[in-house]
């Protein structure tokens, strides 16, 4: 199976050249196949979230190369990188990062605003996704009124609005109980069955050992363990 995303010699340093410089990733080589659920596992500070950001084109590596579907994206100008990000990835963040004061439906619609699609078209798709995730009665509720599990499902629906090939989730079960974690893994399995690639980070053993997970990549101190 060919790799959908490839990292070659990727290093990421925060505050480079300053006294507080921090090496978050160090010479990482990694290839992730399409249509699989991959978990990045490791303790806090091991570089999981940074690796997810680099994989999802949210951050550029300090050095090294990132390929997405065969195209080198690590040196693309921001305008092109944003396009790749929108077309290819959907993100579910650990803190969900929903926009407060807006309804669940509007939050789901937001990623599609710059695409040029009509409001009604986007709203229809948002309602469809929220319905599939059991939130049809909460579409007009402001996101801060929702429970943690409901907010996460809104974040999943938002990640899917532009029909991405890859869904990236950062510590998605960190704020969920066992039942909701199991439910979430079920949703991921469904996404994989639709042909999407799922990459997530977790330090939760229940997630790494779950039957739906195809591959676990272990990280320690910014390096991929053999």
């Amino acid at each position: 199976m060919s790799a959908l995303i490839e990292l070659a010699g990727v290093t990421k340093v925060f505050h480079e050249g300053q006294h507080n410089a921090l090496v978050a990733l160090c010479d990482v080589d990694l290839a992730l196949e399409a249509g699989r659920i991959t978990v990045l596992q490791g303790p806090s500070g091991s570089g999981k979230s940074t690796l997810l950001s680099v994989l999802g084109c949210l951050a550029r590596p300090t050095s090294g190369r990132v390929r997405v579907a065969g195209e080198v994206v690590s040196n693309l100008p921001e305008a092109f990188l944003a396009d790749v990000r929108r077309r290819t990835f959907g993100f579910v963040f650990q803190q969900f990062h929903l926009i407060g004061g807006l309804s669940a439906r509007t939050n789901v619609m937001l990623p599609a605003y710059p695409t040029g699609r009509t409001h009604s078209e986007i709203a229809r798709r948002a309602a469809e996704l929220l319905g599939q995730l059991g939130l049809e009665k909460l579409t007009d509720a402001r996101v801060e009124w929702l429970s943690g599990g409901e907010q996460q499902r809104v974040a999943i629906a938002r990640a899917l609005i532009n029909d991405p090939r890859v869904v990236i989730a950062d510590e998605p079960t960190a704020n969920l109980d066992s039942a909701l974690s199991a439910e979430f893994l079920g949703i991921l399995a469904g996404l994989r069955d639709e042909g999407r690639t799922v990459i997530m980070s977790s330090h939760d053993p229940r997630v790494c050992e779950a039957a739906v997970v195809d591959r676990v990549v272990r990280l320690l101190d910014g390096k991929v363990e053999a």
Partner: peptide, 16 residues
């Protein structure tokens, strides 16, 4: 700043 970061992460480009 955080809001702009979120918007960019979920698919907005600089122009938007």
């Amino acid at each position: 700043r955080r809001e702009i970061g979120i918007l960019k992460a979920i698919g907005w480009d600089t122009r938007a």
